[in-house]
Design a protein around this nucleic acid. Structure first.
Lengths: 263, 263
DNA sequence: TATCATTGCGTCATAAAGACGCATTGTATG
DNA sequence: CATACAATGCGTCTTTATGACGCAATGATA
């Protein structure tokens, strides 16, 4: 987690540094791996940190009487503007050495604050990892108080992140892959209407391998979770593909058992 | 979590109550769902609590400089005597209302201690859930300082547990089911040598459904992860079945991709 | 020695998965 | 405006996996 004012836009860093210990659960943060799908690529939302040439996952602290999941929803809403978001807790990261204490104390010194050694922000922190799947077109990235910008990155281009955030991202991807048949991947990541090639590219990106176009279509239609619309997507350079949307009722039912078959 | 002396057998409850705040991470505990397999039934290790007519999951606190997983290993070692244990973190339980504060303050009052309202044990606690798979025959249940006994329960007979521990147990089982093809279920839960019917019963118990004996054998052998020994298990009332053991090299390799096929 | 439940191995029918052929379609090009 | 082109939609064929079940062999028991 960044140290930070992520969930309190109108609070200053100094406010949080001073009062965080009163407001938040001690030694605990959360980080969100927010996935989007755009131009046939998986994207992840990252923050450019104010005080360093690094990028980080959006995160936050948990108020003393707040459900962790509520806190995650809050962070997601503030970073993307989306209220109805799909998210899943996937892992707790708690190695004793994972917090960058120097980073935080340096920032405070810069602000003229000399933090006590037992200052809450300088303690060891655990972070609860959540991944979220959002419709790229509906998300409007908003930086928080600790960051200068908030941008989508292609997951393949992310090399190094703040602290152990790259590790967290990798673990999120791994989890997503394993849960592919049990989570509403397509429904949450694609717009309401989409083409079969788009859905296929989504699967290919997550699985990181090519799939046969014709077999993919047969299988997807076999699940009985897609409705083919009468419209087609015009404007492409070639034959206009049909648009599809999910039959949400059937989709959810199918996911309870898990979509059958491996990839 | 029980409040408790679980990881410090020679410490008194009073010791922990008084000093826990100095030693442990605040507001954080861990709980272990320890599975064993015996007489064709899945068992879970539970503690009978000293101060209540309730059973609870073994758990513990995390020292301030201790890795959470290390702490879980510590708890498992102390409850079972097993050093080389298979465990997996599966979920964090963090609802604000999940801690039973009255329970803890009552115990302290019983001991003549009048806890301050901000006493560490009376704070809101999160707990990190781990599940462990152990060889039943090698585990020797040891109660901890907060419990009068430590026993294996058939998972189907567990009705109600302390706080949200039943919920934690259910979630562990659900996770185990989902990860069946990716975890060394058989290797960790069965003794080194086992029969095919035993392996099948293990799968049937976890999946909670009957499988065809002959198709199960064909499929298992098809994975190429089992070695059939020349010995048979004598003593049964009927035809002596062959003993098998895992080809660990192949098994681990197969698990990386996941055993193919659904159940 | 006969009995009997269990075990090991096999067959058959059906369903799913993988590889690929081909006509159709909407756009672009000359 | 005819033609080329690449992507799409649908289908076939083959190979594998799955589900249901038959049957002989086995080893303790009566």
């Amino acid at each position: 987690m960044l140290f930070s004012v992520k969930m309190q836009q109108n609070l200053t860093i100094a406010d949080v540094m001073q009062n965080g210990g009163k407001w938040f659960m001690p030694s605990l943060s959360l980080d969100c791996v927010i996935f989007g799908f755009h131009e046939n690529q998986m994207k992840v939302l990252l923050l450019k940190m104010k005080n360093a040439e690094q990028w980080a996952l959006p995160g936050g602290f948990i108020y003393k009487d707040e459900d962790i999941e509520e806190a995650a929803i809050r962070v997601l809403r503030e970073r993307t503007g989306i209220h109805d978001i799909f998210l899943q807790q996937f892992h707790v990261f708690g190695r004793p050495g994972r917090s960058d204490k120097k980073f935080h104390s340096d920032i405070m010194k810069k602000d003229g604050i000399k933090p006590a050694k037992d200052h809450w922000i300088l303690q060891r922190f655990l972070t609860v990892g959540y991944y979220a799947l959002v419709d790229f077109a509906h998300a409007i990235p908003h930086p928080d108080g600790t960051s200068t910008s908030c941008e989508w990155w292609d997951i393949h281009e992310v090399k190094e992140l703040f602290m152990d955030h790259k590790h967290i991202l990798d673990k999120a991807l791994e989890t997503l892959r394993l849960q592919l048949n049990h989570q509403p991947i397509g429904y949450t990541l694609l717009p309401q209407k989409f083409t079969m090639p788009e859905l296929q590219k989504l699967y290919e990106t997550i699985l990181d391998k090519k799939l046969d176009r014709r077999n993919f279509q047969r299988r997807m239609m076999g699940y009985g979770i897609l409705k083919r619309l009468s419209e087609t997507r015009k404007g492409g350079a070639h034959k206009a593909p049909y648009l599809y949307s999910f039959d949400l009722r059937r989709y959810k039912k199918a996911l309870q058992e898990g979509l059958q078959g491996g990839w």
